[in-house]
Amino acid sequence: MVETTLAAPRRAEARGPSPRHLDPDADLVTRWQEGEEEAFEALIRRHERRVFGLLWRMLGCREEAEDVAQEAFLSLHRHGHRFRGEARFSTFVYRVAANAALNRRRTLGRRRARERELAERQAAGTDLPSAPRSAEAAAAGSEVQTEVQRALQELPHDLRVATVLYDIEGVPYGEIARVLGIPEGTVKSRIHRARKALRDRLRPLMGAEHRSSEP
């Protein structure tokens, strides 16, 4: 068998707790906590892609993700004095971002329900994505990516955050466990359940490839 695992080299990071001297952000964090704002800006630039990626996949809308990413970094700045280096700084960042995404989804829930009702009336039964289809398709670059994004939005929050962090952002199990405050085994279980749910949802897109890969 040529390929037996999905694990990428990026997952070879250490899984245990990370003392401050092993945290690649430790120096910047110290300088920031001592009052150097440029250090915080450097931290943002170091983590913005992953934070934005997480939020985009969690919220399903680029504009919302950008807005919440700003709020998450502001929150980080506001509460940064509480970071003591018990975990990696990136863990702290993901936790703040994941909480921000959850809060925003709760806020959006009622509004989207009303919007969906209106859209359904207008489209008379058309299955609409959570964001405007043309914009999402353009941003994602293809219909498949749009479908994957829509499928992600249909996952429960706890499954979605686990699979986004692991499968898309490449965060190791151990760090996800610390971000979410759950055991590593639960992280693995959620990722597997998320993949199966996504597989069920995306199976129609796999037909052609299946047939071509049949022995």
Binding site: R49, F52, G53, W56, R57, A140, G141, V144, Q145, V148, Q149, L152, T163, D167, I168, L198, L202, L205
Partner: peptide, 8 residues
């Protein structure tokens, strides 16, 4: 498919 999603 998940890993193919672009993010910047």
């Amino acid at each position: 498919m998940l890993r193919g999603l672009p993010v910047e």
